[in-house]
Design a protein around this nucleic acid. Sequence first.
DNA 1: ACAAATCGGTAAAGCGCTTAACTTTTTTCT
DNA 2: AGAAAAAAGTTAAGCGCTTTACCGATTTGT
Lengths: 339, 339
Amino acid sequence: MATMQDVARLANVSIATVSFTVNNSKPVSPATRARVEAAMQELGFRRNAVGRALASKRTHILALLYPALQHRFRGTVVNFFTSAARTASEHGYNLVLWPASNDDELDELTSTGLVDGVLLMEVQVEDPRVERLQKSGTPFALIGRTAEPDALDFVDIDFEGTVAASIDHLVELGHSAIGLLDGGVGSGALRGYGPVVRTRGAFDREMEERGLMAFRLSCDENPAAGREMGARIRDEAPGMTALILMNEHAAPGLLSELRHQGLSVPDDLSILSIASSKEMAAMNDPELTVMSAPSIELGRRGVELLIDQLDGGGDHDRHALVMCALEPGASTAPPRAGH
Amino acid sequence: MATMQDVARLANVSIATVSFTVNNSKPVSPATRARVEAAMQELGFRRNAVGRALASKRTHILALLYPALQHRFRGTVVNFFTSAARTASEHGYNLVLWPASNDDELDELTSTGLVDGVLLMEVQVEDPRVERLQKSGTPFALIGRTAEPDALDFVDIDFEGTVAASIDHLVELGHSAIGLLDGGVGSGALRGYGPVVRTRGAFDREMEERGLMAFRLSCDENPAAGREMGARIRDEAPGMTALILMNEHAAPGLLSELRHQGLSVPDDLSILSIASSKEMAAMNDPELTVMSAPSIELGRRGVELLIDQLDGGGDHDRHALVMCALEPGASTAPPRAGH
DNA sequence: ACAAATCGGTAAAGCGCTTAACTTTTTTCT
DNA sequence: AGAAAAAAGTTAAGCGCTTTACCGATTTGT
C-alpha cells in the first residue's frame, strides 16, 4: 500500500503538503493540489488509519457497546445500529458494534485508546458502566437514561409521552379499564430497566389523573411466559378491556393462549404494543397495533450527541426525548358493547 | 494514561524490556519482570493499542461484515456474533460488527489498515465482495459459500445433511408427500442466497432418490407473504402432509392462515422449520419443531479459520460444514390416518 | 583455562501520519 | 518604493510501541 511518503515523492512536494491536501487542514494552491491528487490517484493511495490515529490521537472509531448478557436483538436494534452507523459515517467516523460482556472488557476498551467514544445501549436505571466510563475519561452518550441523567448526554424514548398517547388512543376508542403488561424489572433496589420503570410510573400517574381503572401486570420476555399470563389474565385483571403491552416477546404466547380460551383480540381485549416495531407487530395474529420505537431517530441523535462532544460542535441540547409513533394494526378496537 | 516510557522509567529498565515483559516476546529475568509488573500496577498501565498496531502492523481487530441491505437480524445472528467475539477474544483479538453498505465502504475498510481480517456473512452464491477482498489482500473467511468455494476458507451449515436429516425425521413419522417452502432466491442468473440454492438442490436430489412426492414452494420472508402462501398452499401442493420450512419469518403468517382455514398443525400438516432457532420457533403457535442453526459453532470455527490465516496456526482444514440439530417441538406428527 | 555459546538487557530505528514552527515568495498598504 | 502582511510550502519533532542489532556478563565445553 502506498504511503504519504510515496505520494509526496511522486508529486514532488513535502509529506506535510500531502497531509494538508488530504485533510483540507491548510490551504493548498490549486496547482499543487492537482499534482498531489494525481499522484494519489496513480498510486491508489488511502491514508493509513493507524498512522493517522497515532499522530492525531483520534481513531475515529465509535463503539456501540453491545451487552453480552443480551440474548436476543430487539427488533429495533437493527434500525438503530444502521442509522447510527450512517450518521457516524457522515461525520467521518466509523461506528461499530462492540461486544463487552463485563467490566473488564469495558475498561480494556476505553483504556487502550482504540475508540474515541462510546454509545451505551440498554442502560439500566442504576448502571455501573456509567461510572466506569466517567472514570475512564472516554466521551460517551447514553441510549436510555439512568436515574440521575441530568449531567449526562442521552437520547431516549419519551416513555411518558408515549404512554399518554397510548392511553389517549384507547380512551378514544371507548376504553376505561386499561392494563399495562411489562417485562418486569430485575431484582435489587433501584436497579432495573429504565423503560419499564418509567413506563410504569407514567402509566400509574396518567391513569390516576384521568380516573381510569388501571391494572398492572408483568411477565418474563418470552412467549411461554406470555402464554402463562394469558391463562390467568382474566383473573388478574377482571373487567379489563384494553392492554398496553410493553413486552414484544411475550406477545405470541399471550395471543395464542387468549385464542385457545376463545377470547377475541381486539373484540374481547384490545392490545396496543408499545416501544416495539412494525415488523415485530406483523409477526402476530392479529397483527398488532403498535407504538413503534423511533430507532432511526435515536441512532442519529445518539451519534450526534457523541460527536458534538468529540468535535465540540454547536451547543446542542444534551438531552433528547423522542416519541413512539402509532402504527395502526388490527389489535385495537372499541370494547364490546356491554362493557 | 501511562505509557511504556513511564513504566520503563519507574522500573528503571529500558522501554524494550517493558515491551518484552508485556508481550512475553523475549525472556526476562524474574527479578526484572517483577519490577516491571510492579511499575505497571502502580501506574495502571495499559499498552496503547494504536501505537502497538502501528509498530507491529497488526491492529488485532477482526471485522464481522454486516451488510446494510439486511433489514432484520435472523435470530441466529446474535449467538453467532457473541460466539465469534468470544473466540476472537480468547486469541487476543477484538471482533466487532462492522457495517459496510456498499463496495466503497468495503474497500475503505480493507485499505485503511484498520482491521487485520474480515469475516463475511450472508454470502451470496456469486458474491462480488469476495473478489474485492481477494484483490485487497485482506485475510478473510466466509460464513457461507460461493459457487466455487474450494480455494476459500469457509464455514457453513451442512444444508445437504440437514435436509437429509429433516426428511428422515418426517419419513420416520410416516410422511411421504413432503414440501419445501423457502424464501426464494434473488433475481439474476447464478446470483442468490447460498442456503436456499443448496437446500433446494439437496431437497430435490434426496426426494428423487427416495422416490417420495416432492413439492417446491417459495414466498418472501415476512408474515404477510406467509399468510398468502397459506391461502393457496392446498392448491399448490395437493396431498402434501409435511412441510420443510426454510423461511422463519413467514411462519407466523402461514400458521395463522392455516388456522383460519381450520387446518391443524401438525395433524393436517406437519411443519419442520430448518436453519432457524429455538427462540424463533417458540414465537409460533404451535411451537415449531426446528432444526436449529449451529450458530455458536459457526462463529467459533469462522474466527478460528481467520486467525489461523493471520497467525499461521496449524494447518486446519480450510472448510467446515456443521449440521443443524433437531429440537423437538409441537409442529410435527404422523400424518392423519387416511393419507 | 580460554574460546564459544548463552543469557539478560539496551540502544535506536522505524511504523505512517499530524502539526507547530519556520522559510520563502507574493501581495498589499501607505 | 519599502515595510508589513498574507499565502504556500517545508522541516522536523513527535505519537506509543515493536523489533533488530548489539553489548557485557555469566555459563559451558573441552
